Amino acid sequence: MPHEELPFWNVNVPRPLRVPICPDWLANVSDKDRDIIGTWDADYEDMTWDEVRGIISENRIDLFRRRPSDLRRYRHFIHLLNKHHGSVMAFILSRRLGWSDLTPACSVPFTDPTDVKILYNDWPYGVDARIVHLVVWTKFALAETEDGDLTPQAREAVEAYVERAFVERVGRDRVAWFKNWRSLKSVHAVEHFHVMLYEPEEAFVRSVTGGDVPLCKRVGEGEGVLELLR
């Protein structure tokens, strides 16, 4: 079914809310984001578990996409967050992680549980609804090579942690993890990596996340977002 021709910022927007001029919070988005936001939700196909695993195994993290309307909401949220809360890092630390600083309790990564926190990805990619997208936040750094990839030692440490924390409960074929390239990170100052689980038990996810609810399920669009940022 053909769609109405619209400027990218009005795609997926109800007719009464469309505007003639691009909102300032969308004016400087990347070409990639512009193309995604300008795609109709009805034309977007969620990534399958096999596609997700393929992207991660080939280290083509840049191929991940959010659903068009989700990306639009995400960009608006980030704009309001920076405008009214100071920075993404400050919000993540104080409101999502509840950490006053990033000093690890132990110098050996993944040794002290207080140095790690598992939460939902607040703005997950457009994947099969059976896939749960989590983020593992750490107070300690994970060593990288010059090209931004994990060092063999750091990768081994993450693999061992993922095995203990997820694979033993969910199954090897239903767990995949990746660390964003430096150029793709939206939060640079707090170390983290991503874990995707295929059809995990809800009770297990509640347990590891402490009953967390991602921001995408708590906020809408528009100035109502400010209630969350106060």
Rank of each mutant, 00 (worst) to 15 (best):
A165N: 02
L228H: 03
W123A: 03
G220R: 03
A129F: 02
L134W: 14
W40E: 14
V127D: 03
R169S: 14
K32A: 14
A160N: 06
F204I: 07
Y198D: 03
K139C: 06
I21P: 00
A105S: 12
P152E: 07
V29S: 13
V162R: 01
D112W: 09
S30Q: 03
P7C: 05
T103H: 12
F166G: 03
A160T: 10
E199F: 06
H133Q: 15
V52E: 00
R60H: 11
H85Q: 03
F8E: 01
I131Q: 01
L81M: 09
E191C: 13
A176L: 08
F193V: 00
V219F: 09
A143V: 10
H133P: 05
D24K: 10
K179D: 06
F110W: 08
A189V: 06
Q153D: 15
N121Q: 07
S207R: 15
P16G: 13
E159I: 11
V187F: 08
W181T: 02
C106Q: 07
E146R: 09
C216F: 09
R60K: 12
L150D: 02
D115F: 14
T111L: 14
L81Q: 12
D70R: 09
A143H: 14
V135I: 15
R218L: 15
G86Y: 09
D149Y: 12
Y120L: 00
P2E: 13
G54V: 03
V208H: 04
S207Q: 11
E5G: 13
G210D: 02
L226M: 04
R15H: 13
F193Y: 14
N12S: 10
W49P: 08
D147G: 03
H192W: 02
I37G: 06
P2S: 05
N28W: 01
D43Y: 03
E58M: 15
R182L: 12
D122Y: 07
F8N: 01
D115I: 08
Y74A: 15
E58G: 09
K179Y: 02
G126C: 04
A189S: 14
C106S: 15
I21D: 11
E163V: 05
D33W: 08
Y120M: 02
V225W: 00
N121A: 11
G210P: 00
A160Y: 00
Q153S: 15
A189E: 15
L197A: 04
